[in-house]
Nucleic acid binder design. Structure first.
Lengths: 153, 153
DNA sequence: TTTAAACATGCATGTAATATGCATCTAAAA
DNA sequence: TTTTAGATGCATATTACATGCATGTTTAAA
């Protein structure tokens, strides 16, 4: 059970942008920071833009910015929109959902509800909640690579 | 976001067995019912047995049975044991979890908690809850194939 | 004791959803 | 008019699963 990298990268991009609200950030800058496939990143950025999470501009001094306040974008919202589907089991998909046990089995609705528990929990957290309030990129950039790991949990 | 077929099939097998507590059920019988890859089914059955959900016996008149009462096996328990991993994003895996934002990002713990919400919801439902109390296989077998879809939700 | 019916298991292969790469286009600013 | 940025379509790679195949092992009945 996992999210696609598309959703994963989306969250990373938005978190990076939350720490850089005052300037245009380029794909290359994010790529430098995370060392993520630049091509994939480009597509993620585009989808984020289409979904209204960020504003992009081309050309010199172009780049992207958060379209809204980090405190107004929830993790749940991002996951719901950036993850392609949530068909946990076969019977949750329209076409293939022809399990012979369906008429007597309520697994589908139980899983639907459990998924909603998952997502609404994420609705309770915003991008602002996801970064340490005292944190800054300046601090991060001083750390030798590999120091990682969130000391908060 | 989806579960593996391994977990999916596991639930189906257990649901089938919940409706057939009084006899030994063979892989072929389950295969006939669900039309699932027999080879994969074999492996699922084995894992279910190793994990103590079912008892199997070889030889003539062999087969499998639920090891416990359907009311005592929760969906959550099955999913937790039969799904290979729950690394929703890269930073949740031990080896690859070297995201540069980790020191200031609490996404990992937020997702961990959301996942726990999902699983504990499933802990609240048992195999007995997952089948309609009035249902029987006899009823199901009378239905023409394709009638499907749970009318409960 | 032999045969048939079941599950067990290792190895090989297929598959399909993502992910990535590459080339090129479009837009904006200096 | 050149450079810098994102946009986009098509091709290819990757990889986790899923499936297939062959064979082994156990058990019970004939």
């Amino acid at each position: 059970m996992q999210l696609t990298r598309h959703a994963d990268y989306s969250l990373r991009v938005l978190i990076y942008l939350s720490l850089n609200r005052d300037k245009n950030v380029t794909i290359d800058e994010i790529n430098d920071f995370y060392r993520i496939s630049r091509n994939h990143l480009t597509k993620v950025v585009h989808t984020l833009s289409v979904n209204g999470f960020i504003n992009t501009s081309r050309g010199k001094h172009g780049g992207m910015r958060l379209a809204r306040d980090p405190g107004g974008i929830t993790i749940g919202e991002v996951v719901r929109q950036m993850e392609p589907h949530f068909k946990l089991v076969e019977c949750q998909s329209e076409e293939l959902g022809d399990c012979r046990a369906a008429p007597i089995c309520s697994l589908k609705s139980v899983l639907d509800n459990a998924l909603e528990q998952f997502l609404s929990y994420l609705d309770g957290y915003t991008l602002a909640d996801a970064v340490r309030p005292d944190a800054s990129l300046a601090y991060l950039n001083k750390l030798p690579i590999g120091t990682s790991r969130n000391s908060r949990d």
